[in-house]
Nucleic acid binder design. Structure first.
Length: 420
DNA sequence: TCTGGGGTCCTAGGACCC
DNA sequence: TCTGGGGTCCTAGGACCC
């Protein structure tokens, strides 16, 4: 049996956690650069605010409806997420953190009759100890647990937890469950399934197995089998090392000069390098890309990328900043207004399996020590407390974050003061 | 003025090898 | 005259997730 624990409207719930006067009020959270809506409280959903809606088009609507708007505060959400996950680990060590607001738990060996109560206990514990509302779906496969979770979220009568243990219950629910709401069925698959006359999850289950495999590949077949109660997707309790690591951002204001682009890029390279070291890996392939704003059809457009293969894999911030800066100078063209730049690291290997190059001229042990010092200083004094000169101070290329909430739980100066 | 960012997996087809 | 057959690797593109 699997349980899927999913935080309700997670980002909106985090914003509300330290602003209790916002309970019952509509809240939306915007994407990076305050671009579009990525999270909504139930009240905002009820007002018809669409997921992914561009913020600038809704300025008026949000004002009229008294919606509280926030820039995304990933420092806050990340910290609250850690608290939720820590709480869940108290229930079982067999846990897979699936995303910032979701985790799968393996519940093997638990008596079936107790499962729904167990789910409700999880809901109560997270609410009491972290303050975030969650829903729990329990079923024999991950895909069914996802279904159960949606049922729990939608029906208040479930009191936060839904158990789909028997086939009868599953059939009953799946006959009313839209096929597009199944985990792993996206827009394209929905179109093709609708064309086959498939509307509900049950319709999908009743398609012949061979047809499913032919039309929707092995991925579709796994989903089909999971709906039938056959586990095909396992719990991944040790997170796999990432095969690509990317940092890219749009700018608040478009940028013209190569100096400012270089400064932004240096910061993204530093972020990528730190992510790489956190998973104890090195990368030997670097991609740098940049482009103008494709929405501004009135302006000249330019987009380019460059790929570099290093002779030896690295995780050094210094080296990656240097390499990416060189690549930028190769692809930068003056006379354009740039909207976004980014860096992608690939060909990632564990740091103790790096193929040593005969032609290497870098003092690797020394660099590793410097990086170790850099990481421990930044862990203690905050991200980017110690930085490479090229990173600058980001005065000109900042992204937009006009409605950022305080880092209530991670920055001493932002901790709430309570007058008693 | 303004439209997110960061990932994974699978397949088809071409190049190349013997 | 005959137009094999089996395999690997790589890449681009498509689909999906949160």
């Amino acid at each position: 049996m699997f349980a899927l624990v999913d935080c309700n409207n997670f980002y909106a719930s985090c914003e509300r956690l330290f602003r209790p006067e916002l309970i019952g009020k509509p809240i939306v959270v915007l994407s990076n650069n305050d671009g579009c809506v990525i999270a909504r409280s139930n009240e905002a959903k009820a007002l018809g605010i669409a997921m992914g809606a561009p913020a600038f088009k809704m300025e008026k609507e949000m004002k009229q409806n008294g919606i509280h708007v926030f820039s995304s505060n990933y420092t806050l959400y990340g910290d609250i997420s850690n608290r939720v996950m820590t709480e869940l680990s108290g229930f079982t060590p067999d846990i897979e953190t699936y995303s910032i607001d979701e985790a799968f738990l393996s519940l093997h060996g638990m008596p079936l009759g107790a499962l729904e109560m167990y789910g409700r206990e999880i809901v109560r514990a997270i609410h009491r100890n972290v303050g975030i509302p969650v829903s729990v779906g329990i079923a024999p496969t991950k895909v069914l647990a996802k279904v159960a979770n949606k049922i729990a979220k939608k029906n208040p009568s479930k009191r936060g937890a839904c158990l789909l243990d028997t086939q009868e219950k599953q059939i009953e629910v799946l006959s009313k469950f839209d096929v597009e709401d199944i985990w792993g069925i996206g827009r394209q698959h929905t179109k093709r399934l609708n064309a086959l006359g498939v509307k509900t999850a049950l319709d999908f289950m009743r398609l012949p197995r061979a047809l499913v495999q032919k039309q929707f590949t092995i991925v579709g077949l796994k989903i089909w089998e999971e709906l039938h109660g056959v586990p095909r997707i396992e719990l991944e309790d040790v997170p796999a090392a990432k095969q690509t690591i990317c940092t890219a951002r749009s700018f608040g204001k478009m940028i013209e000069t190569v100096e400012q682009l270089a400064e932004a890029l240096a910061n993204y390279a530093a972020t990528c390098a730190a992510k790489l070291r956190r998973q104890k890996c090195c990368a030997s392939c670097v991609t740098v890309f940049l482009h103008t704003n494709p929405f501004r059809e009135d302006l000249p457009q330019y987009a380019r990328s460059a790929v570099a293969n290093l002779h030896q894999a690295t995780s050094s911030t210094i080296e990656l900043i240097e390499v990416s800066a060189k690549m930028l100078s190769q692809i930068y063209k003056a006379g354009f207004l740039y909207k976004k730049i980014g860096i992608i690291l690939s060909e990632i290997v564990p740091e103790n399996e790096v193929q040593v190059s005969l032609f290497d001229t870098i003092d690797r042990p020394r660099d590793a020590e410097i990086m170790g010092a850099l990481d421990s200083i930044n862990a203690k004094y905050g991200r980017d407390a110690l930085r490479i000169g090229r990173q600058g101070f980001g005065k000109r290329w900042k992204h937009r974050q006009e409605r950022l909430s305080p880092c209530y739980s991670t920055r001493l100066s932002d901790v709430l003061t309570i007058k008693v």
